[in-house]
Simulated assay, not measured.
Amino acid sequence: MDKAFLIQLAGSAAAVMALVALAAWAKIAKPLTPLDDARARRLLAQEFPGKPLERIWVATDGRGAVARSGASALVLFELGDAYVARHVPWAQAVSSSFRDGVVKIDLSDVAAPMARIALDRWPPTPREAA
C-alpha cells in the first residue's frame, strides 16, 4: 500500500462518516409546540375548509384534538414531526375505546392507522357534543 492509496482511503472514510452524521442529524424530529384551542381550530380549518366546527376537544398534553362537524369527527394528532388530520363518522369516534386517559380512534388508514389522544374523559355527554 502506497501513501496515495492511504490518503484516498482516509478521505473517503471521512466523507462517509460526514454523510452518516448528516443523515442521523436530519432524522431528529423537531419538537412541536403543543396545540391550544385556537391553533387546533386554525389547523382544522386549513385541512377541512368550509366544515363548521361545532365543538373541539384538545388533548391534555397538546398533542391532538377531536372536533365535531355535523355527522363527522375531525381528528388532529401528532405523527412524526407534524400534525395529521383525518375525518371519521362521529358515531365511530364516540364509540372509540377510552382507557387510562387516552382515546384510541381507529382511522382505517394505512399511513395513520390509529389516533391516540389524551383527554380527561370520553365520550362527551350529549349536552357537550351538541
Rank of each mutant, 00 (worst) to 15 (best):
R42E: 14
I56C: 08
P126N: 12
R68Q: 07
P31G: 08
D120Q: 06
W122H: 03
P124Y: 02
V103M: 00
R55I: 07
A115E: 03
W90C: 11
G80F: 09
A65W: 08
R116Q: 13
W25T: 09
A26D: 13
G64L: 06
H87L: 11
E47S: 15
Q92S: 12
R99H: 07
E78P: 01
A40L: 10
L32Q: 09
F48G: 03
G50H: 08
A71V: 13
L44F: 10
H87C: 09
D120P: 02
A29D: 15
L74F: 09
A67P: 02
F48N: 04
A85M: 11
A26H: 13
I105Y: 03
V102S: 06
S69K: 01
L19W: 14
V20K: 14
A59Y: 01
E54P: 00
I56F: 08
I28F: 15
G64D: 04
G62M: 01
G50I: 05
V88M: 10
Q46P: 03
L22C: 13
V103K: 01
A15V: 13
F77Y: 14
A15G: 08
V110I: 07
A40F: 11
I28A: 14
A67L: 06
Q46R: 12
L76P: 03
L79V: 10
V66P: 00
F98S: 00
P126S: 12
P124D: 05
I56M: 08
F98K: 02
V110S: 00
S69R: 00
L43P: 01
Q92L: 13
R41C: 14
L76H: 02
V88G: 05
R86I: 04
S69H: 01
G70K: 05
P126Y: 12
L22S: 14
P113F: 05
D37P: 08
V75C: 05
S96K: 04
G70T: 09
D109Q: 02
L107G: 03
V75A: 03
V75K: 02
A18T: 12
R68I: 03
A112C: 08
W90K: 10
I28P: 10
R121N: 06
V66R: 00
L76G: 02
I56N: 06
K27M: 14
V75W: 07
R68G: 01
D106G: 04
D106F: 07
Y83L: 06
V20N: 11
W25K: 12
H87K: 12
L44N: 01
D100R: 10
A18V: 12
I28R: 15
D61F: 07
A115Y: 05
A118D: 08
S72G: 05
A26T: 10
P124C: 06
D120W: 03
R63M: 10
A71N: 13
R41M: 13
I117S: 01
A45D: 11
L119V: 02
G101V: 02
E54V: 09
P49A: 08
A67V: 04
R39W: 11
P34H: 06
A85I: 04
M114E: 11
E47C: 10
D36G: 15
L76K: 00
E78G: 02
M114G: 00
I117T: 00
V16M: 15
P52Q: 07
D106H: 09
L79A: 14
D109Y: 00
R121G: 05
P113D: 06
P124M: 09
L107T: 05
V88R: 08
A67G: 06
R63V: 01
G70R: 07
R86N: 09
L19A: 14
